[in-house]
Every structure is written in C-alpha cells, then in structure tokens.
Amino acid sequence: MTTENSLKQLRRKAYLAYHQDGILDIVIGLAIIGFGLMMLSNSLVVFSWLPALLYMPLKNAITVPRFGFVQFDSEVRTKTQLARGLAIGVLTISVFVGLYFAVGRDSIPAVLRNWVGENFMLVLGGFGAVMLIGTARLVSLQRLYWYAGAMLGIIYLGIRLDIAEPVYTITLGLLFLIPGVWMLIRFLQKYPRTGEGNAEG
C-alpha cells in the first residue's frame, strides 16, 4: 500500500467516525416523521423541515465535546461544498415547486398530470432521494444511498399495498430514526465525555 493510500484511508476513517454519531439520521428521521404526523393532523407540512435546524447545535453539544473538533477541508473548499449543496437543494425544491404548480394549472399533458396526481408521494420521494444522493455525494456517506433506495422502496410499497400515506411516511421516518438512535448510543459509549473540556493534561 502506498503512503498516499494509507493517508487517504486514515482520512476516510477519521471522517467516517466523525459522522457515525447518528445525528444526521436522527434529524432526517424526525423531519420525515414530522411530515407524516402533520399529514395525519392536516397541519402545515411545510414546517416539517424544522428539525434540520437541530443538526449543528446537536453536533456541537454531543459530537464535538466527545469526539473532538476536526476540520477536514480548507475553508474555501468547505464553502464550495456548501454552495454546491445549497445549489442542489434549491434546484430540487424549485423543480418540485414548479411541477406542483404545473400540475395545478393544467400546463402539462393530462396523462402526465394524472400520473403525478396518482403518484404524488412517489414523486415527492423521488425528490427526497435526489437530495439524499446529492448529500451522500457531498459528504461521502454510503448509507445515504441506501436510505435513498429505501425511501423510494417504502413509498412504492405503500402505494402498491394501499397503505395510508401518513403511515408509510412515519414508517420511513422510523427507518432513519432507529439506526440513528442506535448509532448515537454506540457513539456515546465509545466516546464518553471526560468532563475536562478540551484542556490538555
């Protein structure tokens, strides 16, 4: 093995360990469960993304004091990645909103309009999967690809088996939340808080 490969592996190992706290999974899971619960109670589903705001505070409160702080890329590269992520997010949401209005205003062919109407949750899941794949590419987390596949699979099964939308949406959220909680418990066991802050001996 070359030195360069060893360093890449070292970086990869440290990088993955930093993201094995399950916080991302928990936040996504909570957002999806929130979406399902809001559908169930006919509330405003647009607020279901709010758990995403918990990500950084949780990371700073749980991960950093135990695992330590590490910045893998230069600030320029971090900003570029963030900009790319935002671009993917904005583009995906724009296409989704555009499609939503196009369906509502009869500006697309009837066949397509009917299909989107009948499979709206699948379309929504498709956009969710695209965002997950985009995030997976940005942060190099393989499990997000599995989540993207599972998202489409569960929605497809939910539609085919005629299960109520909120039920399979909440199930999907649990699919993210349960592994996230399990990863968090393992993380907390592996990296207990020393109670000595960051001060060196």
């Binding site: 135990r66 702080f69 990296y191 001060a199």
Partner: peptide, 13 residues
C-alpha cells in the same frame, strides 16, 4: 489529512 484538529480529536485518534 485534516486542515486542523483539536486536542480531544487527536486524543481519540
């Protein structure tokens, strides 16, 4: 392999 890291991170690694 990192831009910068803190003491706790180095301790764990």
């Amino acid at each position: 392999v990192a831009e910068r890291a803190d003491f706790t991170f180095l301790l764990n690694q």
